[in-house]
Design a binder for these strands. Structure first.
Length: 515
RNA sequence: GAUCUCGUAGCUCAGUCGGUAGAGCAUUUGACUUUUAAUCAAAGGGUCCCGGGUUCGAGCCCCGGCGGGAUCACCA
């Protein structure tokens, strides 16, 4: 391996540390009793009449962190260390860290050699000391004891910030940031914020569901029949059984089996895998929250969804008015409801309700939407909506009542022939959730699967497989229910105001690196 | 998969008309006991993504490849 000059220096420093009798990777625990952010927020001191300071708290702190900056000032030194909560400044003095009798012979090598020469940016250290404010008002730890906790052998990008908050030499190359997310997280604090928001959002959803009595469950990731969605799966092979298995594209059919089994409300944060293109809104593995609730319909689901979204916005952003790009989105319930046919009429001026396939195809051609003969009525309506209407729904809006051809798992509409009881929640011109009154008529379900099988024979590689066990479950009796799936990564993109899915996944898929 | 675009020091970036490879930070050496983008003085550091071609001469021009980003297609 070719080492850079800085890597060679650090390896030499490591050797010198060992020669000083210091273990650069000591095993003992370090007894932390304070954190950077809390110290800076809560430290108090008062200036007495004689000008001396009375320090009120944090006079015996023990912290740990990574060295992020070093400023030598002769026989003193300043460092910034970073712990999980942020950075704090350290103040170190040569004579206070010396060995031996202050009145007689003293050994200053700990400060002169270890601290000034052998410690580098990136090293983990633990320090003990007391907190004070410097002349310039910076809350700092006056260090009385320092211990090297772990030596770093590679130089970190050094990102600097001035008093006005201008950032210099930021570590910005997306390829390096995604491949070395650990470095990204160390030097770009706002990246950490995004991921903390993601965790907060998921916790908020979990709380919303749990307090209403929903049950969190786990269902198979490896499936013999990849069902519940129209997508190309990843395929793998099980050696002991000598069978092909698929990574799940959805967990819908398993959650519905659980409703058959007698649970009334189940949910799962499902990692799904789809063998399709990648771009700034698609990663091969992604997270969907699905939940299914017995004895409910899609009207109930709309109300539940808007309540949940309102809570999630409050919990993750502190407000229902969320800034996304240059827009402010209001997640205050209730949300607008528009049927897909009304939406098309509103944005094309054409009423397509009641039109047959030929009529729809003419409308598409007139509006310069590419069509081909494989497209049925449902697909044509879907094209009209996604080409002409979808992008206009910036504020959260429920688009309802889709054509039956697009929705093989959805119950037919109670009053509108040819449509199903389905909605998608559109936010910022994109779909973030998809929900139905679920189909629970096993004979209708079997026919819908058979239609999918015909599509597959015609070469549609995204058509659904027939899942005979799922049909058997439904034949045992499935209660009426409503179900929904939320694209969690896309919700995080909204609430964290990020334009790329790679910014909300710790380790987005990349081409393998060649070493 | 298609098109456009980028790849130069550890990081962020300059590099003119094709003529000896540059800066800031980081690193090394020295000064400085309340600094904070610390400062001051000096020094070292390069497979210019890889492979071909044109040329007396290529970081720069041409061809091919690898990797990233953006747009589009498919999808959530």
């Amino acid at each position: 391996m070719q080492l850079s000059e800085q890597e060679i220096v650090r390896r030499e420093n490591l050797q010198k540390i060992r020669e000083m009798g210091i273990d650069p990777y000591p095993p003992e625990a370090w007894p932390i009793n304070a954190y950077a952010a809390a110290i800076k927020a809560n430290y108090q001191e008062e200036v007495l009449e004689d000008g001396t300071k009375n320090r009120l708290n944090y006079q015996d702190v023990c912290v740990a962190g990574r060295i992020m900056a070093q400023r030598e000032a002769g026989k003193a030194m300043f460092m910034n260390i970073q712990d999980s909560t942020g950075q704090i400044q350290l103040y170190l003095r040569r004579n206070e860290l010396a060995a031996g009798d202050p009145a007689g012979e003293q050994d200053f090598s700990f400060f002169d050699v270890l601290i000034k020469k052998l410690l580098d940016i990136g090293d983990f250290i633990g320090v003990k000391g007391y907190v004070f404010n410097t002349k310039t008002g910076e809350t700092s730890i006056h260090v009385t004891e320092l211990k090297l906790l772990a030596k770093a052998l590679r130089p970190l990008p050094v990102v600097k910030k001035d008093a006005e908050g201008n950032v210099f030499d930021a570590f910005t190359d997306p390829e390096l940031r995604y491949r070395m997310r650990y470095v990204d997280l160390i030097v770009n604090p706002e990246v950490k914020e995004t991921f903390l928001k993601r965790t907060k959002m998921i916790a908020s959803i979990r709380q919303f569901l749990n307090e209403r009595g929903a049950l969190e469950v786990d269902t198979p990731v490896l499936q013999a029949i990849p069902g519940g969605a129209a997508a190309r799966p990843f395929i793998t092979h099980h050696n002991a059984l000598d069978i092909p298995l698929y990574l799940r594209i959805a967990n819908e059919l398993y959650l519905k089996r659980l409703i058959v089994g007698g649970f009334e409300w189940v949910y799962e944060f499902s990692r799904n895998f789809r063998n399709e293109g990648m771009d700034r809104t698609h990663n091969p593995e992604f997270t969907v929250l699905e939940f299914y609730t017995a004895y409910k319909d899609y009207f109930w689901m709309m109300e539940t969804t808007e309540k949940m979204m309102e809570k999630v916005a409050l919990d993750t952003c502190g407000t229902t008015d969320v800034q996304v790009g240059d827009k402010v989105l209001s997640f205050k319930a209730p949300f607008k409801r528009v049927s897909i046919l009304e939406a098309i009429q509103e944005h094309t001026g054409i009423d397509v309700s009641g039109m047959d396939e030929a009529g729809l195809r003419d409308v598409c051609k007139k509006l310069h939407i590419a069509v081909d003969n494989s497209m049925g009525k449902g697909k044509l309506i879907d094209e009209l909506f996604s080409e002409k209407a979808e992008k206009h729904y910036i504020q959260p809006t429920f688009i309802t009542d889709y054509p039956v051809e697009m929705s093989p798992l959805t119950k037919r509409h109670r009053s509108k022939p040819g449509l199903v009881e389905r909605f998608e929640l559109m936010v910022n011109g994109k779909e973030v959730a998809n929900a139905y009154t679920e189909l629970n008529d096993p004979i209708d379900q079997r026919e819908r699967f058979e239609e999918q099988a015909r599509l597959m024979e015609r070469g549609d590689d995204e058509a659904m497989f027939i899942d005979h066990d799922f049909l058997r479950a439904m034949e045992y009796g499935m209660p009426p229910m409503s179900g929904i799936g939320f694209g969690i990564d896309r919700l995080v993109m909204l609430f964290a105001n990020q334009a790329s899915i790679q910014e909300v996944l710790f380790f987005p898929q990349m081409r393998p690196e060649v070493f």
